[in-house]
Amino acid sequence: MPDESAPRNIVEKFFSSVNNVLEAPVIWVREKVIEPNQKQSAWYHQKFRRVPTIDQCYTDDIVCITEANLQFKRDKLVDSEILSILRERFEDCTLYEAPDHLEKCTPLMKQYEEAATNWFIKYGDLGAYGAAKAAYMKQKHRMIWERRHGPVGSGIKNN
């Protein structure tokens, strides 16, 4: 049985040889030079390893506290960017679905409002120079409040 991929006439043999002459060096460079030297990660941003959080650091371990603060600031930047993307999606939906955007963009609005609330719970009222310890204390105070009075915003229980 003859090989189906083999050229059948002189014209096909000519174009096949020209193709091999032009394509073979490109394939060789790609396989032998470029691919072995590429980073194997599918992401194009720098990945940092997760470090211990501020509650896992000793009080006199300056290196651990500094790493926790840097991790906190990176997390804040990522969360702020996610919030910005959600806001842009909602605004684009509002512009695109102009007359009846109230019903079509409601899921995006709810998703954005929930993310904004969660962002404010974690990072709000810390100021521009808020650190991991301040956020940890804020979380602790919120948990104490909720244990004593119920969810924040529901008012104070009278026992």
Rank of each mutant, 00 (worst) to 15 (best):
D61W: 04
M1T: 13
S5Q: 04
P36E: 00
T66P: 03
S41N: 06
L22Y: 09
V152Q: 09
Y129A: 11
E103L: 12
E113L: 14
V78S: 13
G153M: 14
P7W: 07
N37T: 04
E146M: 12
A134L: 08
N69C: 05
N69E: 06
V33G: 01
I156Y: 15
T66C: 06
C57Y: 01
F90D: 01
N9V: 05
I121H: 03
Q111T: 12
V63L: 12
E23M: 13
F90M: 15
G130H: 02
K32R: 09
V18S: 08
K138F: 00
A131S: 12
S5Y: 04
R89M: 13
Q46E: 11
T117K: 09
H141E: 11
E23Q: 11
R148Y: 14
P99E: 07
D79W: 04
Q56I: 00
V11H: 15
Q56P: 01
S154I: 03
A135L: 03
Q38I: 02
K47F: 02
K76S: 07
P52Y: 02
E81D: 08
V11I: 15
N118I: 03
G130S: 06
S5V: 05
Y44P: 00
E114H: 12
Q139V: 00
L86S: 08
D75A: 10
S41F: 01
P52H: 02
Q111N: 14
P36G: 04
K39G: 07
L126S: 03
A132G: 05
P52Q: 02
R50L: 08
N118C: 05
R142D: 14
C57N: 04
F120W: 13
K73W: 11
T59K: 05
S17P: 08
G124N: 04
V11T: 15
L22G: 06
R147Q: 15
D60E: 10
S5P: 01
R142M: 12
N159S: 11
K157P: 06
E31C: 02
Y96N: 15
W28L: 04
Y96I: 09
R89Y: 11
Y96D: 15
A128V: 13
E103A: 07
W119E: 07
G150C: 10
V63H: 08
D125A: 09
R148I: 14
V63M: 10
E4K: 11
I62G: 02
Y136E: 06
L83S: 11
N9H: 12
M137I: 01
P99K: 04
E97V: 11
H101W: 14
E35D: 06
N118M: 07
R30V: 00
D100Q: 11
I65N: 05
G130V: 00
T59Q: 10
P25A: 05
A132T: 01
K104F: 10
S154D: 09
G124I: 01
V29F: 09
Y136S: 12
A135W: 02
R89S: 13
M137T: 04
K157C: 13
R89V: 14
G150V: 12
R74S: 03
W28K: 03
K104V: 09
S41K: 03
Y123A: 03
K110F: 10
G130A: 05
L126E: 01
W145Y: 15
R148M: 15
K140P: 00
F72S: 07
L77N: 11
E81W: 06
I82G: 13
A24P: 04
K47W: 04
V152Y: 10
H101R: 14
C105S: 10
E23D: 13
F72E: 08
